[in-house]
Design a protein around this nucleic acid. Structure first.
Lengths: 163, 163
DNA sequence: TTTATTGTTCTCTTTGTTGAGAACTAAAAA
DNA sequence: TTTTTAGTTCTCAACAAAGAGAACAATAAA
């Protein structure tokens, strides 16, 4: 697949696409991703070719091997990306896990449940001398649990609406 | 309010409360707060006395003045806390903004709208050659918008349920 | 066996974050 | 006016995060 040295596994991107990768990247940085990992998820969403090799990612984003390796492993561990292989090709082709967004939504909901539980612990040890405060806390907890309970039905409704 | 030097504006907390502050603090660190800011919001949720002065916060959490000042200002700027004053007392008493959780929810929903818009931009520039991928992207966008649209009604339903 | 491919891991530098402590400031009190 | 109160801001040190580049490893190909 290379005569002496290819040296250009780079993916061709328009200016618009490059800029979009940066914007989506920044959004992910705000969610706690490292700059490198944020650019990688972004690239895998924006790239016209959705399955990219280690070197395609590295060269397109201008990252070092270590940064690329660490970013890819982090994203695999946190279920943001996945990879596939092809017989007779040792490379791994990395791809966004956007297709399993339903699972991600479920995980996000589980997190809300955890927050509600922690809030409940706070509420349980609060004195009766702060009724207003306690009421607010109790409301948030109740609302979170309500949302949690209603979301599956809402999802079904959406699923049916889209035939 | 002090004869020469009080030196103990500290809030008395049980072991359980201290531990809870740490756990709630860590949760907020994961959401991007600095350790100091995370402990301050946590303290203001757990403390039996819900309105605390600068020095009560500083001494209870064992923070420096600069860390306390920066944390409080950050939390005020991001609408996580608020303060009240009392006539004839120059101190500000800081309190959690948990009571305005309805506003926070609205803000969270606005953020989802922003994400959907960014995703839409990605979708718009994608080639037709990746129909599966594009479909997933389109689904997430549509689902986010659906949730967004249905949430107000869901909120009303919750509000009525609670008489 | 030797060489090439596909990454991983280690070390080191750069950069950024966190917060302590002291100096400073503005307003009120004495 | 001088002092006290209630914080803010500055400087600095300790520490952590990010990533570059080189060395290394594991497997496959020649």
């Amino acid at each position: 697949m290379s005569e002496l040295n290819d040296m250009t596994d780079q993916v061709t991107l328009s200016e618009k696409q490059k800029q979009l990768i940066e914007r989506v990247g920044v959004q992910h940085e705000k969610a706690g991703f490292s700059p490198a990992a944020a650019r990688v998820v972004a690239l895998l969403l924006v790239s016209p070719v959705p399955e990219l090799s280690f070197d395609q990612i590295r060269e397109t984003l201008g990252l070092s091997k270590s940064a690329t390796s660490n970013a890819l492993n982090f994203l695999i561990n946190t279920d943001k990306i996945d990879y596939i292989t092809y017989t007779g090709d040792r490379k791994r082709y990395f791809k966004s896990k956007i297709s399993s967004w339903r699972e991600s939504m479920k995980d996000a909901i589980i997190k809300i449940t955890g927050t509600a539980a922690l809030m409940e612990e706070i509420l349980e040890q609060r004195p009766d001398s702060t009724p207003e405060f306690n009421k607010s806390l109790s409301e948030v907890i109740d609302f979170m649990r309500y949302i949690n309970q209603e979301l599956p039905a809402l999802y079904e409704k959406w699923e049916k609406r889209n035939t």
